[in-house]
């Protein structure tokens, strides 16, 4: 990690059932393999039933930080769902924040029921652009569906994170592969690695 900023704060956010917790666990485990000190705070439990789910990652060279990021101090926000990426800006965003988001919406219950509207993707992305230093997108769900199962979306997103080329976020493919071997059955290795690679290749910066 370059620079003096410690810890680096990453938020991975999404909707219950998107594999947010597993994604942050794999990323954290991979970074610990690389010698960093990582703390992850997760909100789930009741939240897994269609609610917003957010993981806070604190990445440090030396210290075990608390599992929650203070207000306005996110460095990177990763949305498994675009509206969720926007939602975390209210509390954690700042003008320097970097944002990566999946483009596929999951409609809240109130939108399904017709009590509220889900904004156009372009509106969400332009709002994210106003609130971020830089925004990247990846069509993670579409890539996962093309692979045969939307469950791979979270691994596509992890690959996309590695594809951002941030010097302070040194997630290496080899440590990710090692963690896959530790956490998932052997037969799941090839498909998850493929999802990671596809995400790394597919991430796109939003034109400013």
């Amino acid at each position: 990690m370059s620079g003096q900023i410690d810890p680096r704060n990453v938020i991975i956010t999404g909707v219950g059932g998107q594999g947010n917790v597993l994604a942050s666990q794999m990323m954290g485990q991979a970074l610990v393999q690389q010698g960093l000190v990582v703390t992850i705070g997760e909100t789930y439990g009741a939240s897994q039933r269609g609610g917003s789910v957010m993981s806070h990652l604190r990445i440090s060279r030396s210290q075990q930080w608390s599992p929650l990021i203070p207000e306005g101090q996110a460095h990177l926000v990763v949305g498994l769902e675009p509206l969720e990426a926007l939602r975390v800006m209210a509390r954690y965003g700042n003008p320097q924040v970097l944002t990566l988001t999946n483009t596929r919406p999951i409609r809240p219950l109130d939108v399904i029921a017709g009590n509220a509207e889900y904004p156009e993707l372009e509106v969400i992305l332009s709002s994210l652009a106003r609130l971020s230093q830089k925004v990247w997108t990846v069509e993670a769900t579409e890539i996962a569906l093309a692979m045969g199962n939307p469950i791979f979306s979270n691994m596509v997103i992890l690959g996309a994170m590695a594809g951002l080329g941030l010097d302070w976020f040194p997630l290496r493919r080899d440590s990710f592969q090692e963690v896959l071997g530790l956490l998932l059955p052997a037969k799941a290795m090839a498909s998850n690695l493929e999802a990671f690679d596809r995400g790394q290749a597919a991430v796109q910066a939003l034109p400013l």
Binding site: D110, A116, P119
Partner: peptide, 16 residues
């Protein structure tokens, strides 16, 4: 601005 955009666009997710 962030609070305003989120209040305007980000419908809360009722658990279900």
């Amino acid at each position: 601005e962030a609070a305003e955009l989120v209040a305007e666009l980000a419908t809360p997710r009722t658990l279900g």
